[in-house]
Structures are given as structure tokens and as C-alpha cells.
Computed example of a mutant assay.
Amino acid sequence: MLTIIAAVAKNKALGKNNDLIWRLPADLKRFKKITLGHHVIMGRKTFESLGRPLPNRTTIIISRNVSYKVEGCIVVHTLEAAILAAKEDKNPFILGGGEIYKQALLRADILDLTLVHHSFDDADTFFPDIDYNQWIEINREDFNADEQHAYDYSFVRYKKK
């Protein structure tokens, strides 16, 4: 099983300047809980925005640069190679960025999305279009904005039909 995990705004925004535009502490806690112990696959820019390998996860970085190396991480050059490098994990996660999500949508079995109920016009990275005819919603939790969360949001899991 291959899972895409992302926080996506109403206008499909993911971030700006290799960073999130919003801060939702509940999303970050959930992300950590779900991905702990798994292989996480991401593009080089996404990795560099994190600044380090994520603790208690196997980090796989996709980079076109054949000389790119990061201590403590697996570096590959294609999504297919990343999936192969994660073959021991029954549920590796795709963490982005936008181009990696686009490639992975064809291969993913699960979409685990945090839907941020707000549009961000200044974003420079976006989630690809989803053909919802290919997916079925299997779980949803809705939350209202509060003192820690500036926006309404939902945790939604989809399974490929």
C-alpha cells in the first residue's frame, strides 16, 4: 500500500517558498503519529525545507542530481526507485512536493489529506488535480478554527476504487 499524505488548501495550495503557509498543530501531531516507523518519500526541495531527516522514520529523497547525498537518508532519482527502496515497509508515505504528488497519484492506494478550508493566493506550490471518480472517502473528521488553529480543517482519508 502506498499513501499520499498532505495538507491542502481549498485552492489546492500546499505552500510558499518551500514552507507551509499555515500552522495547524493538530495536523502536525497527526502527521507524526501516522508516519512514525515508516518510510517517507519526498523530493529534494521538500527535504531541504524540513532541514533534517524526520526522527524514527526512514527518509527517502528523490533528486535528479546524481551526486546529491545526505547522511542518514536514502537518495534515489525516480519515484519508482523510491518505492522500490521502501519495499520492506507495508505502508510508505509520499510527503511531496507538488511534482512528486503528481507522479504518485497514479500509484497511490490511499490519500490521507488535511483539507484546510481557506484559500491562499500567495502560494507557489499546489497539489495536483484529483479525479474523485477514482477515489472513495473512507473517513472524515471535521474541526472548527480555535485559539490554536486559525482555519477550519478536516482530516479526510480516501481509498482508490
Rank of each mutant, 00 (worst) to 15 (best):
5 I>L: 14
5 I>Y: 07
5 I>K: 05
5 I>E: 07
6 A>P: 11
6 A>G: 12
6 A>R: 11
6 A>E: 08
6 A>T: 09
6 A>Y: 09
6 A>L: 13
7 A>L: 12
7 A>C: 15
7 A>T: 10
7 A>G: 13
7 A>N: 11
7 A>E: 11
8 V>L: 06
8 V>K: 08
9 A>N: 01
11 N>H: 12
11 N>D: 15
11 N>F: 14
12 K>M: 12
12 K>G: 00
12 K>P: 00
12 K>Q: 14
13 A>W: 07
13 A>R: 07
14 L>R: 03
14 L>C: 03
14 L>Q: 01
15 G>Y: 03
15 G>W: 02
16 K>G: 15
17 N>P: 01
17 N>H: 14
17 N>W: 01
18 N>D: 15
18 N>R: 11
20 L>Q: 06
20 L>G: 10
20 L>S: 03
20 L>Y: 08
20 L>F: 15
21 I>C: 02
21 I>Q: 01
21 I>W: 00
22 W>H: 08
22 W>V: 10
22 W>L: 06
23 R>P: 00
24 L>D: 02
25 P>L: 10
25 P>S: 10
26 A>T: 03
26 A>C: 00
27 D>F: 14
27 D>K: 09
28 L>P: 06
29 K>H: 12
29 K>M: 10
30 R>D: 05
30 R>G: 01
31 F>P: 13
31 F>E: 08
31 F>I: 11
32 K>I: 13
32 K>N: 13
32 K>W: 02
33 K>E: 15
33 K>L: 11
34 I>F: 01
34 I>D: 06
34 I>P: 00
35 T>E: 07
35 T>N: 09
35 T>K: 08
35 T>S: 14
35 T>F: 06
35 T>W: 07
36 L>N: 05
36 L>E: 13
36 L>G: 00
36 L>A: 00
37 G>E: 03
38 H>L: 01
38 H>Q: 03
41 I>G: 07
42 M>S: 07
42 M>G: 08
43 G>C: 06
44 R>K: 15
45 K>E: 14
46 T>M: 04
46 T>Y: 02
46 T>D: 02
47 F>L: 12
47 F>W: 08
48 E>V: 03
48 E>R: 04
50 L>F: 15
50 L>Q: 08
50 L>C: 13
51 G>P: 05
51 G>W: 01
52 R>D: 01
52 R>Q: 14
54 L>W: 05
54 L>C: 09
54 L>R: 05
55 P>F: 02
55 P>D: 11
56 N>Y: 08
56 N>H: 14
56 N>I: 00
